[in-house]
Amino acid sequence: MTATYKNDFLKEVEANVEDGQWVKMCMQCGVCAGSCPLGPHWQHSPQKIFMMIRAGKREEVLTSDSMWMCTSCYNCIVRCPRKLPITHIMHGLANYAHRLGLAPKGQPTREIAKLFWDNIVKTGRVNELKFSLAMYFKDGFGQGVKNAMAMQGIGLGLMKAKRLNPMEMLGGHTCKDKGGIHKMIAKAREIEDRRKGLSGH
């Protein structure tokens, strides 16, 4: 995808991505890129992504798996000489790409995030057992069994330490007002979408 060097994409990012208005403030020093503990796994460093946004490389940015690598360690924010909230921008970009359906398929961070979300919104509590199993079996039954066998020792250990309860398979624990939680989440989404100028998801 060739760069256009028009501001369209930058403006789109500013309008739709959390803290996107900071992208233009980067001065390309690269301290974020060097500070990231997962840096070597990034195809494009944050500072380079900012440059790509300014260059108008919409598809390349939004389909990139780079921002999905962020583990929120905040090293980049602490060190950025221009005080860009880089971590937030990365998550914002990922979220925007996800909303647009451009996020890379099968990207593990995204998968785990989705499973975690689906898991927690159901009851308002994380069901560790179901979450783990969902992870193991996400690539099919056969692979799931293999994964579960491989993690057997840890699972037993967790059970012994009372950190994992097999009874959780049967519905599991929940918060007091499940309906209330659902309402709260719906409301939060509505507010966020309104803030980003979107109408629904």
């Binding site: 501001n7 233009k24 403030m25 260059a55």
Partner: peptide, 8 residues
């Protein structure tokens, strides 16, 4: 930069 001038 705040005004949106792009530096390349």
């Amino acid at each position: 930069q705040e005004k949106g001038v792009i530096f390349t």
